[in-house]
Design a protein around this nucleic acid. Structure first.
Lengths: 125, 125
DNA sequence: ACGCTGTCTTGACGTCCGTCTAAGCAGAGA
DNA sequence: TCTCTGCTTAGACGGACGTCAAGACAGCGT
Protein backbone atom coordinates (compact mmCIF):
# COMPACT_ATOMS: atom_id res chain seq x y z
CA UNK A 1 0.00 0.00 0.00
CA UNK A 2 2.86 2.28 -0.61
CA UNK A 3 1.95 5.40 -2.45
CA UNK A 4 3.75 4.55 -5.66
CA UNK A 5 0.60 3.89 -7.62
CA UNK A 6 0.38 7.25 -9.28
CA UNK A 7 0.09 6.07 -12.86
CA UNK A 8 -3.23 4.34 -12.29
CA UNK A 9 -6.18 5.07 -14.46
CA UNK A 10 -8.25 3.44 -11.81
CA UNK A 11 -8.98 4.90 -8.44
CA UNK A 12 -6.90 3.59 -5.64
CA UNK A 13 -8.78 4.65 -2.56
CA UNK A 14 -7.72 1.70 -0.46
CA UNK A 15 -9.87 1.54 2.58
CA UNK A 16 -6.91 1.87 4.89
CA UNK A 17 -6.12 5.35 3.70
CA UNK A 18 -8.21 7.75 5.76
CA UNK A 19 -8.00 9.87 2.65
CA UNK A 20 -9.18 13.26 3.72
CA UNK A 21 -10.98 15.56 6.14
CA UNK A 22 -14.42 16.92 5.33
CA UNK A 23 -14.62 19.02 2.20
CA UNK A 24 -16.00 21.93 4.20
CA UNK A 25 -13.15 21.96 6.70
CA UNK A 26 -10.07 22.04 4.55
CA UNK A 27 -9.64 22.75 0.87
CA UNK A 28 -9.32 19.57 -1.15
CA UNK A 29 -5.97 19.48 -2.98
CA UNK A 30 -5.90 19.00 -6.73
CA UNK A 31 -4.47 15.47 -6.60
CA UNK A 32 -7.08 14.36 -4.09
CA UNK A 33 -9.83 15.86 -6.20
CA UNK A 34 -8.51 14.06 -9.25
CA UNK A 35 -8.73 10.77 -7.38
CA UNK A 36 -12.13 11.31 -5.76
CA UNK A 37 -14.02 13.02 -8.56
CA UNK A 38 -14.35 9.84 -10.65
CA UNK A 39 -16.10 8.14 -7.75
CA UNK A 40 -18.67 10.92 -7.57
CA UNK A 41 -18.97 10.93 -11.33
CA UNK A 42 -19.74 7.22 -11.21
CA UNK A 43 -22.60 7.98 -8.84
CA UNK A 44 -23.75 10.81 -11.07
CA UNK A 45 -26.01 8.66 -13.16
CA UNK A 46 -29.51 7.63 -11.97
CA UNK A 47 -29.06 4.05 -13.13
CA UNK A 48 -25.69 3.64 -11.41
CA UNK A 49 -26.98 5.27 -8.25
CA UNK A 50 -29.80 2.75 -8.12
CA UNK A 51 -27.44 -0.11 -8.95
CA UNK A 52 -25.12 0.99 -6.16
CA UNK A 53 -28.04 1.15 -3.75
CA UNK A 54 -29.41 -2.23 -4.80
CA UNK A 55 -26.01 -3.83 -4.32
CA UNK A 56 -25.22 -2.13 -1.04
CA UNK A 57 -28.64 -2.82 0.45
CA UNK A 58 -28.86 -6.40 -0.76
CA UNK A 59 -28.92 -9.36 1.60
CA UNK A 60 -25.40 -10.38 2.48
CA UNK A 61 -24.08 -7.22 0.88
CA UNK A 62 -24.00 -8.70 -2.59
CA UNK A 63 -26.33 -8.87 -5.54
CA UNK A 64 -26.49 -11.03 -8.63
CA UNK A 65 -26.52 -9.38 -12.05
CA UNK A 66 -29.49 -11.55 -12.85
CA UNK A 67 -31.41 -9.67 -10.17
CA UNK A 68 -30.14 -6.25 -11.16
CA UNK A 69 -30.78 -6.30 -14.89
CA UNK A 70 -34.56 -6.91 -14.91
CA UNK A 71 -35.03 -3.92 -12.59
CA UNK A 72 -34.39 -1.52 -15.45
CA UNK A 73 -35.74 -0.92 -18.92
CA UNK A 74 -32.26 -1.32 -20.32
CA UNK A 75 -30.46 -4.05 -22.19
CA UNK A 76 -28.06 -6.40 -20.46
CA UNK A 77 -24.94 -4.93 -22.04
CA UNK A 78 -25.92 -1.46 -20.88
CA UNK A 79 -26.28 -2.63 -17.29
CA UNK A 80 -22.98 -4.45 -17.62
CA UNK A 81 -21.39 -1.25 -18.84
CA UNK A 82 -22.68 0.68 -15.83
CA UNK A 83 -21.45 -2.02 -13.49
CA UNK A 84 -18.04 -1.81 -15.11
CA UNK A 85 -18.03 1.91 -14.48
CA UNK A 86 -18.81 1.34 -10.81
CA UNK A 87 -16.08 -1.31 -10.70
CA UNK A 88 -13.48 0.98 -12.27
CA UNK A 89 -14.45 3.70 -9.83
CA UNK A 90 -13.61 1.30 -7.02
CA UNK A 91 -17.12 1.33 -5.65
CA UNK A 92 -17.94 -2.35 -6.14
CA UNK A 93 -16.24 -5.69 -6.52
CA UNK A 94 -17.28 -8.45 -8.88
CA UNK A 95 -16.97 -12.17 -8.37
CA UNK A 96 -18.09 -15.02 -10.56
CA UNK A 97 -19.52 -18.02 -8.73
CA UNK A 98 -20.55 -20.69 -11.13
CA UNK A 99 -23.05 -19.41 -13.62
CA UNK A 100 -23.75 -16.05 -12.04
CA UNK A 101 -21.71 -12.96 -11.28
CA UNK A 102 -22.15 -11.28 -7.94
CA UNK A 103 -21.37 -7.67 -7.10
CA UNK A 104 -20.44 -6.51 -3.64
CA UNK A 105 -20.31 -2.90 -2.43
CA UNK A 106 -17.09 -1.50 -1.02
CA UNK A 107 -18.59 0.08 2.04
CA UNK A 108 -15.27 1.54 3.10
CA UNK A 109 -15.04 3.70 0.01
CA UNK A 110 -18.65 4.73 0.38
CA UNK A 111 -17.96 5.75 3.95
CA UNK A 112 -14.97 7.82 2.90
CA UNK A 113 -17.02 9.67 0.34
CA UNK A 114 -19.66 10.27 2.99
CA UNK A 115 -17.03 11.58 5.38
CA UNK A 116 -15.74 13.93 2.73
CA UNK A 117 -19.19 15.43 2.24
CA UNK A 118 -20.02 15.46 5.92
CA UNK A 119 -20.65 18.89 7.34
CA UNK A 120 -20.88 18.00 11.00
CA UNK A 121 -18.21 15.77 12.43
CA UNK A 122 -19.35 12.23 11.79
CA UNK A 123 -19.56 9.92 14.76
CA UNK A 124 -19.15 6.33 13.79
CA UNK A 125 -20.40 3.70 16.20
CA UNK B 1 -30.87 36.15 -11.69
CA UNK B 2 -34.59 36.58 -11.26
CA UNK B 3 -34.85 32.83 -11.30
CA UNK B 4 -36.78 31.83 -8.24
CA UNK B 5 -36.57 28.17 -9.12
CA UNK B 6 -40.25 27.36 -9.33
CA UNK B 7 -40.54 25.70 -12.70
CA UNK B 8 -37.39 23.86 -12.13
CA UNK B 9 -35.34 21.77 -14.29
CA UNK B 10 -33.18 22.41 -11.29
CA UNK B 11 -32.86 20.12 -8.34
CA UNK B 12 -35.11 20.93 -5.47
CA UNK B 13 -33.54 19.19 -2.51
CA UNK B 14 -34.80 21.71 0.00
CA UNK B 15 -32.93 21.29 3.21
CA UNK B 16 -36.11 20.57 5.16
CA UNK B 17 -36.83 17.40 3.26
CA UNK B 18 -34.97 14.60 5.03
CA UNK B 19 -34.87 13.14 1.55
CA UNK B 20 -33.81 9.59 2.09
CA UNK B 21 -32.29 6.90 4.23
CA UNK B 22 -28.76 5.67 3.57
CA UNK B 23 -28.20 4.14 0.18
CA UNK B 24 -27.00 0.93 1.80
CA UNK B 25 -30.10 0.49 3.95
CA UNK B 26 -32.93 0.80 1.50
CA UNK B 27 -32.97 0.72 -2.27
CA UNK B 28 -33.11 4.20 -3.76
CA UNK B 29 -36.27 4.64 -5.88
CA UNK B 30 -35.94 5.76 -9.49
CA UNK B 31 -37.41 9.23 -8.90
CA UNK B 32 -35.08 9.87 -5.99
CA UNK B 33 -32.12 8.72 -8.02
CA UNK B 34 -33.13 11.05 -10.83
CA UNK B 35 -33.12 13.97 -8.41
CA UNK B 36 -29.92 13.11 -6.57
CA UNK B 37 -27.72 11.89 -9.40
CA UNK B 38 -27.21 15.38 -10.88
CA UNK B 39 -25.79 16.54 -7.54
CA UNK B 40 -23.21 13.75 -7.57
CA UNK B 41 -22.52 14.39 -11.22
CA UNK B 42 -21.81 18.02 -10.39
CA UNK B 43 -19.21 16.83 -7.88
CA UNK B 44 -17.81 14.42 -10.44
CA UNK B 45 -15.35 16.89 -11.89
CA UNK B 46 -12.04 17.64 -10.18
CA UNK B 47 -12.37 21.37 -10.75
CA UNK B 48 -15.89 21.52 -9.35
CA UNK B 49 -14.94 19.34 -6.40
CA UNK B 50 -12.17 21.77 -5.54
CA UNK B 51 -14.43 24.75 -6.11
CA UNK B 52 -17.02 23.22 -3.81
CA UNK B 53 -14.40 22.63 -1.17
CA UNK B 54 -12.94 26.11 -1.48
CA UNK B 55 -16.38 27.66 -1.10
CA UNK B 56 -17.49 25.44 1.76
CA UNK B 57 -14.26 25.82 3.68
CA UNK B 58 -13.92 29.56 3.13
CA UNK B 59 -14.15 32.06 5.93
CA UNK B 60 -17.78 32.96 6.60
CA UNK B 61 -18.86 30.11 4.36
CA UNK B 62 -18.56 32.17 1.21
CA UNK B 63 -15.93 32.79 -1.41
CA UNK B 64 -15.43 35.46 -4.06
CA UNK B 65 -15.03 34.44 -7.70
CA UNK B 66 -11.97 36.66 -7.76
CA UNK B 67 -10.38 34.29 -5.25
CA UNK B 68 -11.54 31.12 -6.96
CA UNK B 69 -10.49 31.82 -10.52
CA UNK B 70 -6.74 32.35 -10.03
CA UNK B 71 -6.52 29.01 -8.21
CA UNK B 72 -6.85 27.16 -11.51
CA UNK B 73 -5.15 27.14 -14.88
CA UNK B 74 -8.46 27.82 -16.55
CA UNK B 75 -10.07 30.85 -18.08
CA UNK B 76 -12.66 32.94 -16.25
CA UNK B 77 -15.58 31.77 -18.39
CA UNK B 78 -14.70 28.16 -17.74
CA UNK B 79 -14.72 28.69 -13.98
CA UNK B 80 -17.96 30.59 -14.34
CA UNK B 81 -19.42 27.67 -16.24
CA UNK B 82 -18.45 25.23 -13.50
CA UNK B 83 -19.92 27.51 -10.86
CA UNK B 84 -23.14 27.62 -12.84
CA UNK B 85 -23.19 23.86 -12.87
CA UNK B 86 -22.81 23.77 -9.08
CA UNK B 87 -25.55 26.39 -8.81
CA UNK B 88 -27.95 24.44 -11.00
CA UNK B 89 -27.22 21.33 -9.00
CA UNK B 90 -28.38 23.22 -5.91
CA UNK B 91 -25.02 22.90 -4.21
CA UNK B 92 -24.17 26.60 -3.98
CA UNK B 93 -25.86 29.99 -3.94
CA UNK B 94 -24.58 33.08 -5.69
CA UNK B 95 -24.93 36.68 -4.59
CA UNK B 96 -23.57 39.84 -6.15
CA UNK B 97 -22.33 42.44 -3.71
CA UNK B 98 -20.98 45.44 -5.56
CA UNK B 99 -18.28 44.51 -7.97
CA UNK B 100 -17.76 40.95 -6.88
CA UNK B 101 -19.91 37.87 -6.85
CA UNK B 102 -19.82 35.65 -3.78
CA UNK B 103 -20.70 31.97 -3.67
CA UNK B 104 -21.98 30.24 -0.57
CA UNK B 105 -22.23 26.49 -0.01
CA UNK B 106 -25.56 24.90 0.83
CA UNK B 107 -24.37 22.80 3.68
CA UNK B 108 -27.78 21.22 4.15
CA UNK B 109 -27.68 19.62 0.72
CA UNK B 110 -24.12 18.51 1.29
CA UNK B 111 -25.17 16.89 4.54
CA UNK B 112 -28.02 15.07 2.85
CA UNK B 113 -25.71 13.66 0.22
CA UNK B 114 -23.35 12.57 2.99
CA UNK B 115 -26.21 10.91 4.83
CA UNK B 116 -27.20 9.05 1.70
CA UNK B 117 -23.70 7.65 1.31
CA UNK B 118 -23.27 6.96 5.00
CA UNK B 119 -22.76 3.33 5.85
CA UNK B 120 -23.01 3.53 9.59
CA UNK B 121 -25.88 5.51 11.06
CA UNK B 122 -24.75 9.10 11.19
CA UNK B 123 -25.06 10.88 14.48
CA UNK B 124 -25.45 14.60 14.08
CA UNK B 125 -24.79 16.78 17.09
C1' DA C 1 -20.90 60.73 -18.48
C1' DC C 2 -17.18 58.02 -19.55
C1' DG C 3 -14.14 54.48 -19.32
C1' DC C 4 -12.38 50.39 -16.38
C1' DT C 5 -12.64 46.31 -14.10
C1' DG C 6 -14.86 42.08 -12.97
C1' DT C 7 -18.16 38.55 -14.17
C1' DC C 8 -21.40 36.19 -17.06
C1' DT C 9 -23.29 34.64 -21.62
C1' DT C 10 -22.84 33.04 -26.36
C1' DG C 11 -21.20 30.21 -29.95
C1' DA C 12 -18.05 26.85 -31.40
C1' DC C 13 -15.15 22.68 -31.31
C1' DG C 14 -13.29 18.34 -29.78
C1' DT C 15 -13.99 14.71 -26.54
C1' DC C 16 -16.47 11.72 -23.48
C1' DC C 17 -20.81 9.37 -22.13
C1' DG C 18 -25.14 6.43 -22.44
C1' DT C 19 -27.33 3.41 -25.26
C1' DC C 20 -27.94 -0.06 -28.63
C1' DT C 21 -26.91 -4.40 -31.66
C1' DA C 22 -23.84 -8.05 -32.64
C1' DA C 23 -20.24 -10.92 -31.40
C1' DG C 24 -17.22 -13.31 -27.89
C1' DC C 25 -16.35 -15.95 -23.65
C1' DA C 26 -17.25 -18.83 -19.49
C1' DG C 27 -19.88 -22.55 -16.90
C1' DA C 28 -23.49 -26.02 -16.47
C1' DG C 29 -25.92 -29.85 -18.15
C1' DA C 30 -27.11 -33.52 -21.40
C1' DT D 1 -18.41 -32.74 -26.97
C1' DC D 2 -22.20 -29.97 -28.01
C1' DT D 3 -25.42 -26.68 -26.79
C1' DC D 4 -27.74 -23.49 -23.93
C1' DT D 5 -27.75 -19.70 -20.72
C1' DG D 6 -25.56 -15.66 -18.48
C1' DC D 7 -22.41 -11.95 -18.69
C1' DT D 8 -18.97 -9.14 -20.91
C1' DT D 9 -16.63 -6.90 -24.83
C1' DA D 10 -16.50 -4.46 -29.42
C1' DG D 11 -18.20 -1.16 -32.51
C1' DA D 12 -21.31 2.56 -33.67
C1' DC D 13 -24.28 6.52 -33.12
C1' DG D 14 -26.54 10.63 -31.02
C1' DG D 15 -26.28 13.76 -27.34
C1' DA D 16 -24.05 15.95 -23.46
C1' DC D 17 -19.80 17.85 -21.42
C1' DG D 18 -15.36 20.74 -20.78
C1' DT D 19 -12.93 24.18 -22.74
C1' DC D 20 -11.93 28.47 -25.02
C1' DA D 21 -12.29 33.21 -27.53
C1' DA D 22 -15.24 36.96 -28.20
C1' DG D 23 -18.90 39.75 -26.89
C1' DA D 24 -22.35 41.60 -23.36
C1' DC D 25 -23.63 43.26 -18.92
C1' DA D 26 -23.13 45.37 -14.14
C1' DG D 27 -20.75 48.60 -10.73
C1' DC D 28 -17.15 51.65 -9.39
C1' DG D 29 -14.01 55.58 -9.83
C1' DT D 30 -12.61 59.63 -12.08
Amino acid sequence: MSKQGTSLTLVDLSADTPCCPPLAQRRVPAETAAVLAPAFKALGDPVRLQLMSMIASAEGGEACVCDLTPAFDLTGPTISHHLKTLREAGLVDAERRGTWVYYRARLGILGQLAALLAVEPVLVA
